[in-house]
Simulated scan of single mutants.
Amino acid sequence: MSLKIYHNPRCSKSRQTLALIKEQGFEPEVIEYLNTPPSAAELDQILTMLDMEPEALMRKGEADYREYIKGKSLDRAEAIALMLSYPKVIERPIVIHDDKAAIGRPPESVLDIL
């Protein structure tokens, strides 16, 4: 059984989601994605698991989004590459449990995959 959380310790929702997972008796692999972003293949797989396109997983309020991504016509590979170049734009937290994924917004939404 594999359980990972793509985590930003400065984000309250990410901290709450991690605490909720631990309350459920799990010890997830914690990946601080700003320091260790996923590979392009991993992010593509995460998007597939979430049944989302890259644009839907982007934080549109981030300065990096407005400066480098907003208004551009990007294919999937280009969007993923930009997300990895500017990882602050990736929505957080993302929890992966075996072959399922969920975004911890609200934190309780990850309970469905545990």
Rank of each mutant, 00 (worst) to 15 (best):
M1F: 14
A56R: 12
L111V: 07
A40H: 08
C11L: 09
G25A: 06
P54K: 08
V30F: 12
L84W: 10
Q24C: 08
D75V: 01
S39P: 11
C11M: 05
P38Q: 00
V95W: 05
V30I: 15
D98T: 13
N35A: 11
N35H: 14
P93N: 12
D99F: 14
I113D: 10
L20F: 03
L74W: 02
P28T: 12
K13F: 10
E53H: 10
M58S: 03
F26E: 15
A102I: 06
I80N: 00
R76W: 00
M1I: 15
L114E: 02
P54I: 00
F26L: 13
G71D: 06
E42N: 03
G61D: 14
M52V: 02
M83C: 13
Y65V: 07
G71T: 04
L74D: 00
Y68R: 05
V89K: 02
I113S: 07
P87E: 08
I69R: 04
A101H: 02
A101N: 06
P28W: 03
D75M: 00
P37C: 05
R66L: 09
T36Y: 14
Q24F: 10
T48N: 10
K72I: 00
Y33W: 10
H97P: 09
M83D: 00
A101Y: 07
E108P: 11
E53M: 03
E23H: 11
D75N: 15
N8A: 13
Y86E: 08
R76G: 00
Q16M: 14
I90T: 01
Y68M: 07
D44F: 03
A102K: 09
G25H: 07
P9C: 01
R10D: 15
T48G: 13
P106H: 01
A81F: 01
Y65T: 01
L114N: 01
M52L: 14
P9T: 03
T17N: 13
P28S: 07
G61A: 08
P106T: 04
D75T: 05
S85K: 07
L43I: 13
G104C: 12
I5L: 08
L111K: 11
R66Y: 02
N35P: 09
E42W: 06
S14G: 12
E67C: 03
K22M: 13
C11W: 03
D64G: 05
R10V: 06
E55W: 04
L18G: 06
R76Y: 00
